[in-house]
Write a protein that binds this DNA or RNA. Structure first.
Length: 371
DNA sequence: TATAATT
């Protein structure tokens, strides 16, 4: 009976999420229109200097958050967070096409390596889209535990240009698990690497390695899907009250099914005492507005992303600048979607020393700007 | 023995 109730609740929950996404999401940007100066001699657009691919995005980042983060650098021609066509889940990567090549360069320099929650995002130029670069990812197992990422790359680089490589490690000890991934620029290169290396012993190794095409990571088991849903349920949009009650109802069911408690008492009890503090609506989307005081005159938006991003979903950041000098006036605002993440960020960052300055961080109140 | 890299 519990499982049936859980199943119903999950179906119900997906419908609610779907409705919320369509209200809040803002939708994917349309295709980039040909832009005069960027037309090549063959009539094709050349966006190689403006179009970026962004990888390792947090699973729960929305299109709006994505646009807000990259829009803080400069004017965006188009951007898209890529989602699974059927489930609507983020695939963890996206594209940003800037109007100005200088802004694309700036985005790589300032946002590549930015830590957001548990992820370190990667920002790089997108290669021209083509069938020849798809399905070029290899799964490698049986690697010697002593082999480094660099050594694995050296082994594979004879077959082509490597785009990414990774060796999986034990989360506790940090020691190699003997498995990894190699993404080549071209699928043909990956095919050649399989022919050349599958079943072969690396120099000095005791065992042969297995090299094959990697599975697509979007296929999940029912268990993994449930786990995922459970994790994402607490991270969503703080939203209107009827969504809150829905959220807690589902959470209680999941708590029963998994025997774990997700919400801290403060996240539940805290809500009732917070009328009028921090919670904002408006065009930027609902969320908890945080006041950040004692920023340096040189502070910019990327500082706020770096400070608050690790704590959870950030929808917007703003540095308040002097109109004439364009220098920061010493304060800014950050909007976060979820109360518990905002509270954690405030608790952690209030009193935080940034260079020579000690930050004051709190929920925004109506009369703080006079201080 | 499995990570969200081509719209």
């Amino acid at each position: 009976i519990l499982l049936m109730a859980l199943q119903r609740a999950i179906i119900n929950y997906f419908q609610i999420l779907g409705a919320m996404e369509s209200q809040v999401g803002g939708g994917p940007a349309g295709p980039a229109l040909p832009n005069g100066p960027l037309l090549g001699t063959n009539g094709a657009t050349d966006d190689s200097k403006t179009n970026l691919i962004v990888n390792y995005l947090p699973q729960n980042m929305t299109q709006d958050e994505f646009k807000s983060l990259f829009g803080s650098i400069g004017d965006i021609e188009s951007c898209k967070l890529v989602r699974d066509k059927i489930t609507g889940q983020s695939l963890g990567y996206g594209f940003v096409n800037y109007s100005d090549p200088n802004d694309a360069d700036k985005a790589i320099n300032t946002l590549n390596g930015l830590k957001l929650q548990t992820k370190t995002i990667k920002v790089s130029y997108a290669r021209p889209s083509s069938a020849s670069i798809r399905d070029a990812n290899l799964y490698v197992s049986g690697l010697p535990k002593t082999m480094s990422q660099k050594e694995m790359e050296q082994l594979f680089s004879q077959y082509g240009r490597i785009i990414t490589s990774r060796i999986l490690v034990d989360q506790v000890t940090g020691v190699s698990r003997g498995v990894g991934f190699i993404r080549f620029d071209k699928r043909i290169e990956a095919e050649e690497a399989i022919k050349g290396l599958n079943g072969q012993k690396p120099l000095g190794a005791a065992e042969p390695i297995t090299v094959k095409f990697a599975n697509n990571p979007s296929q999940k088991t029912g268990q993994a899907l449930l786990t995922h849903l459970y994790q994402s349920s607490a991270r969503r949009y703080a939203g209107p009250l009827h969504h809150q009650t829905q959220r807690f109802r589902l959470d209680n069911l999941l708590n029963m099914a998994y025997g774990v408690k997700r919400f801290s008492p403060i996240a539940i009890d805290g809500m009732s005492g917070l009328a009028g503090v921090g919670l904002s609506g408006g065009a930027a989307g609902a969320g908890w507005c945080i006041f950040v005081y004692n920023l340096s005159p040189e502070a910019d938006e990327s500082v706020l992303w770096q400070l608050f991003g690790p704590f959870g979903a950030v929808t917007n950041v703003k540095v308040i600048r002097d109109f004439t000098t364009n220098k920061c006036k010493g304060f800014g605002f950050v909007t976060m979607t979820n109360y518990d993440e905002a509270a954690m960020a405030i608790a952690s960052l209030n009193g935080y020393r940034l260079g020579e300055r000690v930050l004051q961080v709190s929920f925004k109140t109506s009369k703080q700007h006079k201080a």
